[in-house]
Design a binder for these strands. Structure first.
Lengths: 248, 248
DNA sequence: TAAGGGAACTTGTACAAACAAGCGAGCACA
DNA sequence: TGTGCTCGCTTGTTTGTACAAGTTCCCTTA
């Protein structure tokens, strides 16, 4: 059962995408939408709030809402999982484990993941058969077994872990910056040492806030771009100085 | 007059920050909070929704809400304006115009900004007296005059434009990736040519959705990091393949 | 012609009530 | 012992109402 406001949001999103409400135009008023969809004003407000949060619509008190853009935000899964993102966007992709070992957690890792033992995995990911991403992931001890049981060429670790032990990745914190390719990066990605890479470091947790993994992903320059929309009201992305957290 | 739900959100945020509600703990139920703050449940829900959107609190139907983290999202202004971000975070900073000229808009720029004439500005920004950012901005023709009237060492263009002509930057779209430093970048930032830079391209518009500026900012590696929190429910950041939009 | 004041319109805030849906603990039964 | 089910708790959805606050546009007035 999908909520009413979600269906209304979906219809409005479609109308924006198909040009019924072109970029730059005004959205109908809440009262009009309420009449059209035979819903209470509060329900319509919830629907529009979804689009505002996605950055598609701008809103401020007293003025009619305005269509800002058409691009649609992707799901958490698509940001989190390379496989799910690539699949949703129609790319050919692959993955291969290049190395894997259990070891004791460093003090930093213990603080981050809350376990004494960790599993360290090095993966290389390809897009359209080109290597684009080096993924260095450290899993908390309590999922290590399930990860080790996966085949080395497993396409989507996220999906595989859900299937095998019902693990759901629910929350993530991401840090994004640029670094120079190290010797190993360069060899794996087929670029020169020192060439620019886009780095995404992240910690992922379950619904309960229990840390599952800590990962450092390095993308070959030009292969992927992160995109965000923000407004004076809603602002999810944050800029920080230097390497404050997450260590070196 | 600050809204009730915002004051409640503020108090809850403080409680999280000061450890009254530690990371990993459960937040009080809506009913408890409603009693405590003598507000309707709906108002409390609005307050908590703010914290959920900020990524501080996780929420799902049926289960008690959980505190995920303490870091606070910064405002739109702080993401958008280097000066406002630096000031809010207690950094010493500066800026200097290195070049500026009016010219006809390219076809791409006309499509983006909606004007035939543009003003191109090259700025160098410093943090703690170190050059960290090269900013190449193209302003729409209708703000060119106001921008040219600013002093070359103007610290905050955003604030200056608001003061002089009441211009409000309201919405932004950002693309983030990594590039190699060009000859000019290298000279200005004091790094070697080809060394990694974090690139942030953005378009900013007014409340009405009217484009004001198109900018490409290049940060020296290690100087700044972009940070984001997302969840299975709320996901503002998006990953894209290659250079799809915004051209080269 | 330009500035100012209002009136209509539109979005934002707050409260109240009722039901739906998911979670988790405890209990009963095999 | 442990499996499954039920019941209470908690969050999610929807409607209705009333008022607050900001915008926009028109009309008056200097």
């Amino acid at each position: 059962m999908v909520a009413r406001y979600e269906r209304i949001a979906e219809e409005l999103r479609d109308d924006i995408l198909t040009g019924v409400h072109p970029v730059g135009s005004q959205l109908p008023t809440e009262a009009e939408l309420a009449t059209r969809y035979e819903a209470a004003r509060g329900t319509v407000r919830q629907a529009v709030a979804v689009l505002v949060a996605e950055g598609l619509v701008g809103s401020r008190q007293g003025a009619r809402r305005i269509v800002l853009g058409r691009a649609r935000s992707q799901s958490f899964a698509e940001l989190h999982s390379f496989a799910q993102w690539a699949r949703a966007n129609g790319h050919r992709f692959g993955g291969q484990v290049m190395g894997q070992r259990r070891r004791d957690a460093s003090p930093v890792e213990t603080a981050r993941l809350g376990t004494d033992e960790v599993l360290e995995v090095l993966r290389l990911r390809t897009l359209e058969c080109e290597p684009v991403l080096v993924e260095r992931t450290v899993y908390a001890g309590w999922v290590a077994g399930a990860v080790e049981a996966l085949p080395p060429s497993c396409e989507s670790v996220t999906e595989a872990l859900y299937d095998s032990i019902g693990l759901v990745f629910a929350y993530g914190e991401h840090l994004i910056d640029a670094v120079a390719a190290g010797a190993e990066d360069a060899r794996l990605l087929g670029v020169r040492r020192g060439s620019p890479l886009l780095r995404q470091r992240r910690i992922t947790t379950t619904h309960e806030g229990r840390p599952v993994e800590w990962s450092e992903d390095r993308y070959r320059a030009g292969s992927v771009v992160f995109s965000i929309r923000n407004s004076i009201d809603a602002n999810p992305l944050v800029r920080q100085a230097g390497d404050l957290r997450f260590g070196a």
